[in-house]
Simulated assay, not measured.
Amino acid sequence: MRAANYLDLAPYRRSTVGFDRLFDLMNNATQDTSDPYPPFDIERLGDGTYRISLAVAGFRPEQLEVVAQQNQLTVKGHKPETERQVEFLHHGIDTRSFERRFQLADFVIVQSAALDHGVLTITLKREVPEAKKPRKIDISSPSQTQAGDQPTT
């Protein structure tokens, strides 16, 4: 049995061609993730520009890894076990290792990543290649085509 928040996209699958990946992504996005660590925000900065901010307090830049491959962004944090045993009176800053994945739309690239005050900020930009941008197609009439095909003497 599926979860209550399952979205049935079967009617749309029947009337579209080539959108299977999109529908799979939509179904996966509605699934509840059991581990919300580390917390993150996704912001739209402008037309085609986005920023992902992850709260990674306690991690140094060399303990973080950001990898963009095809349409997936993976952020990993690895905190080695400390050799020195510390006695915490209260331990509220979670510094466990993690792996967080983000699905990226087509033509979205990672522009930069920066760590400042315990927040990892990743800036993304959608850059559509010229060959993939819409272009206007001129429509000719049959009389223009025939006149253009006749040789001039």
Score class of each variant (00 low, 15 high):
residue 9 L to D: 08
residue 1 M to T: 09
residue 138 D to R: 11
residue 62 E to Y: 01
residue 32 D to F: 00
residue 43 E to A: 15
residue 138 D to F: 01
residue 100 R to N: 04
residue 125 K to C: 02
residue 114 A to R: 13
residue 17 V to R: 09
residue 96 R to G: 03
residue 4 A to N: 15
residue 23 F to N: 04
residue 74 T to R: 07
residue 69 Q to W: 08
residue 16 T to I: 08
residue 98 F to H: 04
residue 42 I to P: 01
residue 65 E to K: 13
residue 38 P to N: 06
residue 18 G to S: 04
residue 16 T to K: 04
residue 148 G to K: 14
residue 152 T to K: 14
residue 103 Q to G: 13
residue 89 L to K: 09
residue 106 D to A: 09
residue 81 E to Q: 13
residue 61 P to K: 05
residue 38 P to S: 07
residue 57 A to F: 06
residue 103 Q to L: 13
residue 37 Y to G: 05
residue 129 P to H: 05
residue 110 V to P: 10
residue 132 K to M: 04
residue 130 E to S: 04
residue 49 T to N: 12
residue 42 I to D: 08
residue 26 M to A: 13
residue 127 E to I: 02
residue 105 A to T: 02
residue 6 Y to T: 14
residue 3 A to P: 02
residue 99 E to F: 00
residue 131 A to W: 03
residue 124 L to M: 02
residue 149 D to R: 15
residue 99 E to D: 12
residue 137 I to R: 09
residue 152 T to I: 07
residue 91 H to A: 13
residue 2 R to K: 13
residue 46 G to M: 05
residue 94 D to E: 09
residue 25 L to M: 06
residue 151 P to G: 11
residue 124 L to G: 02
residue 82 T to E: 15
residue 121 T to C: 12
residue 116 D to G: 01
residue 2 R to W: 00
residue 112 S to Y: 02
residue 133 K to D: 01
residue 63 Q to S: 07
residue 25 L to D: 12
residue 63 Q to T: 10
residue 129 P to Y: 01
residue 149 D to T: 10
residue 51 R to N: 08
residue 29 A to L: 08
residue 7 L to H: 09
residue 136 K to H: 13
residue 102 F to V: 06
residue 18 G to K: 06
residue 34 S to V: 03
residue 122 I to F: 10
residue 21 R to P: 01
residue 81 E to C: 07
residue 55 A to K: 08
residue 50 Y to D: 04
residue 101 R to T: 10
residue 137 I to H: 11
residue 64 L to E: 02
residue 110 V to M: 08
residue 118 G to I: 01
residue 25 L to W: 01
residue 147 A to P: 05
residue 25 L to N: 12
residue 57 A to W: 00
residue 33 T to L: 05
residue 101 R to Y: 00
residue 88 F to H: 08
residue 145 T to N: 14
residue 145 T to F: 14
residue 68 A to D: 12
residue 44 R to K: 12
residue 22 L to K: 07
residue 46 G to H: 03
residue 83 E to P: 05
residue 149 D to A: 15
residue 41 D to Y: 10
residue 91 H to D: 13
residue 124 L to F: 04
residue 53 S to N: 10
residue 117 H to S: 10
residue 95 T to G: 03
residue 32 D to R: 10
residue 22 L to S: 02
residue 122 I to T: 03
residue 37 Y to M: 11
residue 71 N to F: 03
residue 119 V to L: 11
residue 127 E to Q: 04
residue 70 Q to W: 08
residue 147 A to Q: 10
residue 134 P to C: 00
residue 15 S to R: 02
residue 133 K to I: 04
residue 10 A to M: 11
residue 87 E to W: 09
residue 95 T to S: 09
residue 99 E to L: 09
residue 93 I to E: 14
residue 54 L to W: 01
residue 116 D to V: 01
residue 27 N to S: 14
residue 141 S to N: 09
residue 59 F to Y: 12
residue 150 Q to L: 05
residue 71 N to M: 04
residue 3 A to R: 12
residue 62 E to S: 14
residue 123 T to A: 11
residue 51 R to W: 03
residue 5 N to C: 05
residue 63 Q to C: 08
residue 104 L to Q: 06
residue 1 M to A: 15
residue 136 K to S: 07
residue 83 E to D: 06
residue 19 F to I: 02
residue 43 E to R: 14
residue 113 A to K: 06
residue 132 K to Q: 14
residue 123 T to W: 00
residue 55 A to S: 14
residue 69 Q to G: 12
residue 134 P to T: 06
residue 73 L to V: 07
residue 113 A to H: 08
residue 105 A to C: 10
